[in-house]
């Protein structure tokens, strides 16, 4: 899934990365060369077969199903917009939609802030940097299913997290409420948020760390000479210079959060009462539990349209706040 998410990042940055890493020597022979014509096709053939069947053909089929009356036995006729209308009238779909919006609104900013904090801390000359980086990145490579199982235990009603809250309460004479994380519709989404932050923040940190290391030291020195405080230097040098990375992470993580699946699937099964159900989870259930592939396809295309619009708007808006060095 992570690898898949990267693809979306590349889409976001493709206009920059499409330019060759080093200019190719121009030798006055542009265009194709007859002797390489068939060779080129042969080299691409295995890749193209996979592309054709599992992406191009799949997209066409998916679009077709979303406009069809599709039952257990397959195609039963053209259905126009019926599936889309059914989707829009389905309260569970809207619940999944708003749950997903909640995940995005909470997870994306938290992850950016926490990841940047961790990266700034690890960008200092301190002992044990590589050790901390090893630890903070460890959840990223962890199998999500295993992570979800541990958090089921951690956040269980009588689990260690609630133990800790009760202990703090009795120690300080407080009465912080002890949440039923997984069993109440009020907290189930937060359980998913906590798991996701634990799992993914290390990724944000590593990307930010690479960006921070690319900020030239001279700029900090110049700012220091001008008497800028550490906080000012961070705000006026670091933040603008790493804004392309912030933009990438923002788009990338939002698209990732749109597609949250395994976390709620394993930890809460979307419950209680669909309170933590995500859109992709609902697509999965509609297609493979209820065998309503037409409705599921309509939802998948709705999701695509939403992600596409979001990315497009972000790309348009980025010139307002993303700073690109001009050569």
């Amino acid at each position: 899934m992570v690898a898949l998410l990267f693809c979306f990042h590349l889409m976001a940055t493709s206009d920059r990365s499409l330019t060759p890493a080093s200019p190719q020597p121009k030798r006055g022979r542009f265009g194709w060369r007859p002797d390489q014509q068939w060779e080129g096709y042969l080299f691409i053939l295995p890749s193209f077969l996979g592309f054709f069947v599992f992406i191009a053909l799949a997209v066409v089929i998916s679009l077709g199903i979303s406009f069809s009356d599709w039952g257990l036995t397959g195609w039963r006729g053209f259905a126009g917009l019926t599936n889309y209308q059914q989707m829009l009238r389905d309260p569970v779909f809207w619940q999944a939609f708003w749950n997903t919006a909640f995940y995005i609104v909470i997870i994306v900013p938290s992850q950016l802030i926490l990841g940047l904090l961790m990266a700034v801390a690890l960008n200092q000359a301190i002992r044990g940097r590589s050790f901390y980086r090893l630890i903070y990145f460890m959840p990223v490579v962890t199998t999500i299913v295993a992570g979800a199982i541990v958090f089921r235990l951690l956040l269980a009603n009588n689990g260690p997290v609630n133990d800790l809250i009760r202990w703090v309460n009795s120690l300080l004479g407080l009465s912080i409420p002890v949440p039923n994380w997984l069993g109440s519709s009020q907290f189930s989404k937060w359980a998913v948020v906590i798991l996701t932050l634990w799992k993914n923040t290390g990724f944000t940190m590593v990307v930010y760390l690479a960006a921070l290391q690319g900020v030239p030291q001279e700029l900090y020195d110049a700012a220091s000479v001008d008497g800028a405080s550490a906080w000012r230097r961070f705000l006026n040098v670091t933040v603008p210079l790493i804004s392309p990375t912030t933009f990438f992470l923002f788009v990338f993580q939002t698209i990732g959060a749109f597609q949250l699946f395994t976390e709620p699937f394993v930890m809460t099964q979307g419950g209680p009462a669909n309170s933590s159900l995500s859109v992709v989870q609902y697509i999965y259930l509609a297609a493979f539990r209820d065998i309503r592939m037409n409705k599921a396809s309509a939802m998948a295309w709705f999701l695509f349209l939403f992600i596409f619009t979001f990315t497009y708007l972000q790309n348009r808006l980025q010139q307002r706040w993303v700073y690109y060095e001009t050569d």
Binding site: L4, I55, S62, Q259, Y284, M293, S297, A300
Partner: peptide
């Protein structure tokens, strides 16, 4: 740009 859920069912 195409998200995984779109190609999952086909």
């Amino acid at each position: 740009m195409i998200p995984f859920p779109v190609t999952l069912i086909p």
